[in-house]
Design a binder for these strands. Structure first.
Length: 248
DNA sequence: AGGTCTGTTCAGCT
DNA sequence: TAGCTGAACAGACC
């Protein structure tokens, strides 16, 4: 389940194909490549070269030399495979072939990933690891949604998924149910620091599953701080674990 | 073997 | 319009 750390690893994979000439594109999966008709993405890319790979939150995009940008999203189970053998069961939902035989593929069992030409990121918030203090204060507290739901909204701050959200709230010692417009300026700053620390650690340690709380996100799980049995509920539409004592 | 769960995004509803 | 619900995907797991 890719979150920001996994998306960053994917971006680093895309760095490996910069400069290569695109000779063919498989955009035949009409669901992953929606709203494009088969052949549309290919027509936009063939003959060009990728020149830079970018990421904001979980959204990836690749610049080309004068052609349109290619947007990529890993969905829930996707990854970027560079110069790997084609997968035996057709899990390559989108692929680009380069001159000389190299290949870049969006490998995604679930088909929840996306490939799109000229992606629009106007509705995507600033990257969770980069967002500044003033901007975070301004954006985050504009709604009374529960903290958990607000963290998951990629239009507010981009890159926090379900596991990372629980980790952030545990670090910040805040209840996932608390209304977001209830936080003081000091608490908003503390929440932002928890986001940046959790994201930074997750990137360093290799993924969103590496947090302190994550091993306890199971039946019978306990708070890593005070050993209290964790609460479990659906908040913001997602399974949420938290400590009822230290996250009051 | 069938039912439930998984997570993200988006459409559609109130 | 803010906020919630369910659809979409298809495999993992019990």
């Amino acid at each position: 389940m890719p979150e920001l750390p996994e998306a960053e690893r994917a971006r680093q994979q895309l760095d490996r194909v910069l400069g290569r000439e695109i000779v063919a594109v498989d955009d035949s999966d009409g669901y992953v490549c929606r709203p494009h008709a088969p052949g549309e993405i290919a027509a936009g890319l063939v003959g060009h070269r990728f020149v830079a790979a970018h990421r904001r939150g979980k959204f990836l995009w690749v610049e080309t030399d004068g052609g349109p940008e290619l947007g990529l999203h890993l969905g829930m189970a996707g990854r970027i495979a560079v110069d790997e053998e084609a997968s035996p069961r057709n899990w390559d939902r989108f692929a680009v072939d380069f001159a000389g035989g190299g290949r870049m593929a969006l490998r995604d069992k679930r088909r929840l990933g996306r490939a799109v030409l000229a992606p629009d990121f106007s509705h995507v918030g600033p990257d969770a690891a980069e967002v500044g203090r003033e901007e975070f204060r301004r954006r985050f507290a504009r709604s009374g949604m529960p903290l958990k739901a607000r963290l998951l909204d990629q239009g507010v701050v981009a890159g926090v998924g379900n596991l990372l959200a629980d980790e952030v709230l545990w670090r910040a010692r805040m209840s996932p149910r608390r209304p977001s417009d209830d936080l003081s300026t000091e608490e908003l700053d503390a929440l932002r620091r928890a986001i940046r620390a959790a994201v930074r650690d997750a990137i360093r340690l290799g993924g969103a599953h590496t947090g302190h709380l994550n091993p306890q996100r199971v039946a019978g799980g306990r708070c890593p701080r005070d050993r209290t049995p964790l609460e479990r509920a659906t908040i913001g539409g997602r399974t949420t674990y938290w400590c009822p004592v230290c996250q009051a």
